[in-house]
Structures are given as structure tokens and as C-alpha cells.
Design a protein around this nucleic acid. Sequence first.
DNA 1: GTCTATAAATCGATAGAC
DNA 2: GTCTATCGATTTATAGAC
Lengths: 189, 189
Amino acid sequence: MKPKTRKEEIIKTSAILFKEKGFSAVTMRDIAKFMGIKAASLYNHISSKQEILSNIIISLAEQFTYGMDKIQNSHKSSIDKLNYIVELHVSITSNNTDGMASLNNDWMHLKDELEYYLKLRLDYEENFRHIIEQGIKNEELKNANAEAMLFSMLSTLRSLYIWIPNKDDLNTSKLASDLSHVLLTGIIK
Amino acid sequence: MKPKTRKEEIIKTSAILFKEKGFSAVTMRDIAKFMGIKAASLYNHISSKQEILSNIIISLAEQFTYGMDKIQNSHKSSIDKLNYIVELHVSITSNNTDGMASLNNDWMHLKDELEYYLKLRLDYEENFRHIIEQGIKNEELKNANAEAMLFSMLSTLRSLYIWIPNKDDLNTSKLASDLSHVLLTGIIK
DNA sequence: GTCTATAAATCGATAGAC
DNA sequence: GTCTATCGATTTATAGAC
């Protein structure tokens, strides 16, 4: 995931700073200083601060959409599908923990792509909900509050970017399996 | 929870706007406009934008600290303590959904109170962790990844402010019990 | 308690030299 | 590809009238 072009380098640097203080509190001068150049030089590679933000967010949102489509089209059990969703989040997040902060906290500062992002997010949530509801019908899952199940899983998976950087020796498959176990079977003996 | 003084009104209004766009993207003019006055008039009641933010965040952080202390000092089982933690989050969040957004997303913009806030948060997490570890020793909880358990519960509870406003007919005790059930016993049949 | 007017600093972005 | 210089807009906050 090393940036190959100068533009990719700007986007990667921005994601680090956006994670620390949020999109609105980071200035073009902050980004430039971090890269050892002047703010005006950034505009030779990108056209606006907005463009940096959309690059970070839309790319991630589309990765989630693509992954969810593959899971939906696989003919697996509901529980297997939920396990794959956990793996999807662990995989995408561990490859871009910085960008995930913008996806979660700065999407509202999108302009041209705001509607597109909101559609991707809504579709994702509806697919997730559908898998849970199917699992209840199948009697794979408890006949309980489906919205609470969805909310709990989504909240945990969306917060992964906060947790993952703290695990130095990151074993993504163990992390995904531990997390699946907690989310699906609970913590009570 | 109706604001009684003009200062409380400013803080309540600010919390609504901070939730929408974040602290840094909201201007004093935005807050004033929402209240039907001019930005300069705000300074007759508060001394800075910073002061508004600390009022929102520190008050909430102290409520969590106070609630956790009471739970720690109660001589209940580990599982009961976890249930009370869920109730604590549902209770505080449902009384101030707007402010919870600042607590979660804008704490890094604190200045004088940043260290104090970080200490309260760290203590809270350590108390939470201790309860889970005790539960594992007691054999009330599974002998599994304690950090994953803590992370999953905390992530879900901290995200409650996003979910609660969407439930119009809010029955807080049913919400807390549904959530406890999902978090403690999982979703698999 | 609210207003108008304004200070002082900082913002995103552009022009043009090298 | 980076620089200096700068524009025009916007920011938090203050001074002083009413």
C-alpha cells in the first residue's frame, strides 16, 4: 500500500492528519508541512481539499460495496455470511486504518459525492439487515431484536480503525475469528 | 433537560450543530443564527468557543465516571455489573444524544481539559476491563479474548448516540435489556 | 442582553517565476 | 514540481453604543 504517485502520497498523508483532528481542523498548510513542501505545491497534484477527502472516502466505500456483493452472491449459510462480513471489515480496515476515520467521521463534508456515498452506505446496511433477517427465518439466529443485532455488529466493525492500530503484532485472521466469536456467540459462559 | 439560562441554551444549541458537522466546522455565526441572535451576543454569556466544547464534554465524562464508581462499589456479580454498564450508557445517552457526538468525536479539540478528559476515559476503560477480567476468573464469562469483549461492548455503547434518535418511541429499559441480551449472549441460536 | 463595526489571524486557492 | 507572493473570504473575539 505504498503511495506510488505524488497524488497518492498527498492522500495518504492527509488521511493520517484527518484521523488525528478531523477534516475541518486540518489545513492545506498542515498537509504540506508534513510532506516537507509548501501548500501551493499541493495544487500541482490535486485540485482542492475536497478532492482529497472524496478520494479517501469513496474508494473505501466502494470496497465495502464490492465485498458485500460477493458475500450476497455466495450461497453460504447466514452465519457464514456474517463471518465473511467480519473478515471484510478486518481486511479493509487493517489495510487503511487512517482512511477509515474519515469514512466514519467526515463523510458529511463531502459535496458532489455526498449523495452517492449515502446510497452506498444505505445499500450496505440493507444487505446486512437482510442477512440477519434471513438468519432468523432459517432459525440459525435467535428470534430476537434484529435491529439491535445489526446495530451492535455494525458499531463494533465500524470502530475497528480505533482498535487495530494498537495491536502491534497484527494477526488479522485471529483477530477476525476472535471478533466473530464474541459478536456471534456472546461473552457469557 | 430544558435549558434554564442563556448559557445552557447556547450549549444545547451548539451540541446539536456539533453533532451535525463537528466542532471545527461549526462557526460562532452558525450557533448565533440558530438562536436568532448575532455572534457577538454569544460572548455576553460564554467566553470562547472552547468553553462551550468543554462544558459539553466534561459534564458527560464525569457522569460516566460517577456511574462507573457506583457500579464498582456495588457488590454484584460480574454479569450484573455489565448489565448496569449498559443501562448507564443508555440512560446518559438518551438524555443527551447530541452531546455524546462531541464526547466521541471532538474530545481532541479540548485544550485546558484535554489531560483531565483523557484520565477520566482511561480510568473508565480500566474499570470496565477489570470487571470483564473478574468475570472470566469467576467463570461467569467465557475464557476468551478479554480485549475483544471489551472492545465490542465499548464500541457498541459509544455508538448509541447514532442509533437512539432514530427510535421515536423510546423505551429505554427495553432498549437496555435487548442490547444487554445481544452483547452478553450473542445472536446465534 | 443585543447590536454594529472592526481588529487580527488564518483559511483555501491562484498567478507566475524558476 | 516547487517556490514566493498574494487575493478574497472567513474565522474568533473585542470595543463600545443602545
